[in-house]
């Protein structure tokens, strides 16, 4: 077991991603964020708070993807979590999806379907705290906290203060 990102690393990554999002979108006028529960939602909120601090208020929502998963029939049903639209909705917006770990890409595929239920944003971008590789679909992130090459047998565990009491990303063998 090894520490991949410490609390301050995570903090710096979130700040850098926030700046990159603002830069890439040339401001925040058409920007909204949506996090994928559970940890992606907390990360989205942190990015939102930081952007609000440095640039101004930006809409932040939560996107549950449970009903769109392609592995639904392979495992027991999971409870549906609340989906919360960002203030002002997503229609015609530049939408940044936020998740903790990008792995197979299947979660993001499901998220793209789930967005389709809610409306039609102008663009969809992806921000993740960790990209660990092993994609099974043609999906990539626009904003990455840290690229971490992993072996398929390892797993990446993201701990966040809001849920786990501390900020830490670790690699489990």
């Amino acid at each position: 077991m090894g520490v991949l990102l410490s609390g301050s690393d995570i903090d710096r990554a979130i700040k850098r991603i926030s700046h990159e999002i603002i830069e890439h979108n040339q401001g925040i006028s058409n920007l909204v964020l949506m996090g994928i529960p559970t940890r992606g939602a907390y990360l989205a909120e942190r990015i939102c708070n930081f952007i609000t601090e440095i640039e101004g208020s930006v809409g932040c929502g939560v996107l549950d993807i449970t009903l769109h998963r392609d592995d639904l029939r392979l495992r027991p049903p999971k409870p549906i979590l609340p989906t919360k639209l960002p203030q002002g909705g997503i229609e015609g917006k530049d939408l940044v999806l936020v998740d903790d770990v990008l792995f197979s890409g299947r979660t993001i595929r499901a998220a793209l379907d789930a967005i389709g239920e809610l409306g039609r944003p102008k663009s969809v971008q992806l921000a993740v705290l960790v990209d660990r590789g092993h994609r099974e679909l043609p999906i990539r992130a626009d904003f990455v906290g840290k690229n971490i090459p992993t072996s398929i047998s390892e797993s990446v565990k993201v701990n966040l203060k809001e849920l786990d009491g501390e900020d830490l990303v670790e690699l489990l063998k």
């Binding site: 639904l72 029939r73 392979l74 495992r75 027991p76 049903p77 999971k78 549906i80």
Partner: peptide, 12 residues
């Protein structure tokens, strides 16, 4: 959804 939405409880 809860009755049919996934594999039976316990399935991996």
């Amino acid at each position: 959804y809860e009755l049919l939405g996934g594999a039976p409880i316990g399935a991996q």
